Amino acid sequence: MRTSLRLNNDLEPGQLIDLARAAEAAGFDQLWVSHDLMLRSAPVLLGALATSTSRISLGVGIVNPYTMHPAEIAMMASTMQELSGGRFLLGLAAGAADFLGWVGIEQPKPLTAVREALRSLRALLNGGKPLTIEGSGSGWTDQAYLRVPPQPTPIYVGAMSPRMVEFAGAEADGVLALLFPPEHFSTVAAQVSAGAAAAGRSLDGAPDGAGARSLDGSGAGSPGAFDLPACVWLSIDHDQRRAERALAHKLAYYGSAFSPYLLGRAGLSRADFAEVDAALRRGDPEAAADAVTPRMLALGIAGAPDAVIARCASLRDLGARHLSFGPPLGDDPVAAVELLGDTVLPVVRGWNEQ
């Protein structure tokens, strides 16, 4: 059972460094930083984290081929691998259409764009040339290669739609799929397995064809293992109400962005968020949080350590072998990470011995 943290790139560099050090001390295996548009630059932040930590793997979650050309993504990933001593993880996705729209960028054929970018990136980072890779996009010449030593890098695909999840199972080293609710893990796992099977990738480690790799959900992008983290929103606090309040604020802010597909999995609809949306339009975030119902809170995990452990155990029972906790984490993120390290992670590590 692996564990990771996911943090937003709205955090100040000093706070992020404190969180990274706390995560490493707590025993987390990975730390991911988002690269949402118009906030702080995740690659720059990760460079600082690489020099402030020594063991934990560091990932960018995610970059997209619309605002950053795959050649520049490869340059960044290669440099981060050198700087971090091989601890870098690359998250790739199509990006959020709403965010791209802020800067007038359209998002045509997102699955094709991600597929071509992944193939180009893998060729570049492994020391090859994209033009030799079928389906890696057009416009590359024989001069399109990195003038630095090869830096093979695990590539994770950020995915929400079934087709993108299946593609991740077919070609990526891992998938970052937000789970609303967390128990949606079993559906995502089935979609990953379907994509892997169609591509001839084995689920048990036995090769099914040339280049096949295992898909066991427990790896970290290393050869022979596909990483399938159960990516959930978490808020932990000894005070149950305080933990739920932090998650309520998160759900209120992002509620209007949830697709009907996501909400339907939890028995919710856009109409259920009408009161939340109205309060936000009035500029009243507290009233918006008040309008978040217990059913909405079930989209994430919130509570005292025992409640968090119980929900994590349900994910383990569904087959999850990597638990990935994302913000809000709690009123005090560093205290929340330390609380996770003191109470939840020892139990999770104990499951490995059962």
Score class of each variant (00 low, 15 high):
268 L>E: 10
306 D>K: 13
228 L>M: 09
276 V>W: 06
223 P>C: 04
256 S>K: 15
252 A>I: 06
295 R>T: 04
275 E>F: 05
222 S>M: 08
289 A>I: 03
283 G>S: 00
227 D>A: 15
290 D>I: 09
289 A>T: 02
306 D>P: 12
278 A>K: 13
302 A>W: 08
273 F>W: 05
256 S>Y: 14
269 S>Y: 09
230 A>P: 05
233 W>D: 07
278 A>W: 05
263 L>Y: 04
239 D>N: 12
258 F>L: 08
283 G>I: 10
263 L>E: 10
264 G>H: 09
295 R>Y: 06
284 D>G: 08
225 A>C: 12
237 D>K: 11
266 A>I: 10
249 H>A: 14
256 S>I: 08
241 R>K: 14
258 F>P: 07
229 P>W: 08
272 D>M: 01
240 Q>S: 00
251 L>S: 00
267 G>N: 07
299 L>D: 02
302 A>Q: 02
279 A>E: 10
303 G>L: 04
278 A>E: 13
288 A>P: 02
300 G>E: 11
295 R>F: 06
265 R>E: 01
229 P>L: 09
263 L>G: 08
259 S>C: 04
272 D>W: 01
291 A>C: 08
256 S>F: 15
292 V>S: 04
307 A>E: 15
266 A>C: 05
271 A>Y: 03
308 V>G: 10
279 A>P: 12
307 A>L: 11
233 W>P: 10
299 L>A: 04
231 C>R: 13
276 V>T: 09
264 G>K: 09
233 W>E: 05
231 C>Q: 13
288 A>Q: 05
288 A>N: 02
271 A>D: 15
276 V>A: 09
262 L>E: 15
304 A>I: 10
250 K>L: 13
291 A>H: 08
298 A>W: 00
257 A>I: 11
239 D>V: 12
236 I>N: 10
254 Y>G: 11
235 S>E: 01
287 A>L: 01
295 R>I: 01
245 R>C: 05
237 D>N: 13
262 L>W: 08
238 H>W: 10
286 E>D: 15
237 D>H: 00
266 A>K: 01
225 A>K: 12
291 A>I: 07
239 D>W: 04
258 F>V: 02
283 G>Q: 01
224 G>K: 05
270 R>M: 14
297 L>I: 12
255 G>E: 04
299 L>M: 09
234 L>H: 03
290 D>Y: 06
308 V>S: 07
294 P>Q: 06
273 F>V: 00
258 F>N: 00
254 Y>F: 13
305 P>D: 01
223 P>M: 01
248 A>I: 06
260 P>H: 04
225 A>E: 12
269 S>A: 14
258 F>E: 02
288 A>V: 07
301 I>N: 11
230 A>W: 09
243 A>P: 10
302 A>H: 07
264 G>W: 03
294 P>C: 04
223 P>Q: 05
256 S>R: 15
259 S>E: 12
286 E>M: 05
291 A>S: 02
274 A>W: 06
276 V>I: 02
281 R>N: 04
264 G>I: 05
286 E>R: 14
279 A>D: 04
231 C>H: 14
232 V>N: 06
263 L>F: 07
256 S>P: 09
251 L>R: 03
304 A>P: 12
298 A>K: 08
263 L>M: 00
233 W>M: 15
256 S>G: 11
232 V>T: 03
236 I>R: 03
259 S>R: 11
224 G>M: 02
247 L>C: 11
